[in-house]
Design a protein around this nucleic acid. Structure first.
Lengths: 202, 202
DNA sequence: ATTTTTACTGAATATATGTACAGTATAAAT
DNA sequence: ATTTATACTGTACATATATTCAGTAAAAAT
């Protein structure tokens, strides 16, 4: 399945919300209203892009003729919550799973694989506090400024990612912590994934 | 639930079948084609009968605006997202509702009534950043240390709550902002609710 | 360097669609 | 006995809606 852009994801999400809410798909104008577009053609082109990528099918000429394809049917799975411990890797091994919480497909703009329970305050200036649940998408495709889950041997941390060539900086959002400089090819160094959202249970 | 006639059952079945097949409800003409009627008004009257008996709801003026009622399909509720503007009150009036997102019962420890879209950084040291969605439970039962939605006339803010007797302090979590001292009985002062959770969409 | 994709605004239009109105006819309820 | 509900045909029409065309602009791919 081809990847969607952020805007396309928003439109797809909007369609799902609309159907859930009303029982029938939105018109182009409805999508514009929900997402703030001023031209129906904005919605139209996004729909055609979603169709091309296989996420929806469109019945030409039919009003509200949008059909979500089987693969993105709303499934209610559960997502594991993994404890981020000072030393220890966040694997999906059973002993590290704190609990499961119900999966809500459309909760964030991106899909994600697990929640990380935050320990410590190394990212407090980014608004990430102790015991927060950070939604992590498993990927190595990270960009400068992304908040990433990085592993160095057994040590796992949540930090800002900043790279220039082979040199990578893992930057905390807290003056009491110092940044980590590391070479991309250092043995035992991995990017486990990146943050795509956050939940605080209070 | 009122009993349906044989023809009404056929029409209801037809609607369900059509949605399962196409992903969206039928038009009057579609129903006519499926059931062999020669006038769209035949379908129309059946739909109005089904609506009257509570099996469907119809959104007037909307094409394919047929919604199977709860007994036919279980759907999750949605929770409104309200923009927190510098001056203006967070009411559930339509004009203030930014969008709706699906309700997940067990998302937070407490139930809640709406999400507040945070503007500004007055609570940044509490890990509440701009554009975060704070889950608000409508209540006046708040305790010291709670993060509350307080209104003073038209001004609505999110602050820490601290009271001693009749004297209430609304304390920001940001040194750039100053705290608000107010008397419990000041006219135009209300506690709208308190924060019970947070979502960051990234 | 050029094409393609993404991401829109804005206007125009054919047609898809809901819906009202005018009938006909039978069965059920009051 | 009269009203109401059921069950349609048939016509008409305003408007809801999909969709095309003409642009602009920036990013990504080739």
């Amino acid at each position: 399945m081809k990847e969607l852009t952020i805007q396309q994801k928003k439109v797809l999400q909007c369609i799902k919300f609309y159907i859930k809410k009303t029982g029938f798909p939105p018109t182009r104008a409805d999508i514009c209203r929900e997402l703030g577009f001023k031209s129906p053609n904005a919605a139209e082109s996004h729909l055609r892009a979603l169709e091309k990528k296989g996420y929806i099918s469109i019945e030409n000429g039919a009003s509200r003729g949008i059909n979500l394809t089987d693969n993105n049917s709303e499934k209610s799975e559960t997502i594991p919550v993994i404890g981020l411990v000072a030393a220890g890797s966040p694997t999906l091994a059973d002993e590290n799973i704190e609990k499961h919480i119900p999966y809500q497909e459309s909760l964030f703009l991106s899909d994600f694989d697990y929640f990380l329970r935050v320990k410590g305050l190394s990212m407090k200036d980014a608004g990430i506090m102790e015991d927060d649940l950070v939604a992590i998408k498993k990927t190595t495709d990270v960009r400068n400024g992304d908040i990433v889950v990085a592993r160095i041997d057994d040590e796992v941390t949540l930090k800002y990612f900043q790279s220039s060539g082979k040199q990578i900086k893992l930057i905390p959002a807290n003056d009491d912590y110092s940044e980590i400089d590391i070479d991309k090819d250092t043995e035992g160094f991995f990017i486990e994934g990146k943050s795509v959202g956050l939940i605080r249970e209070n």
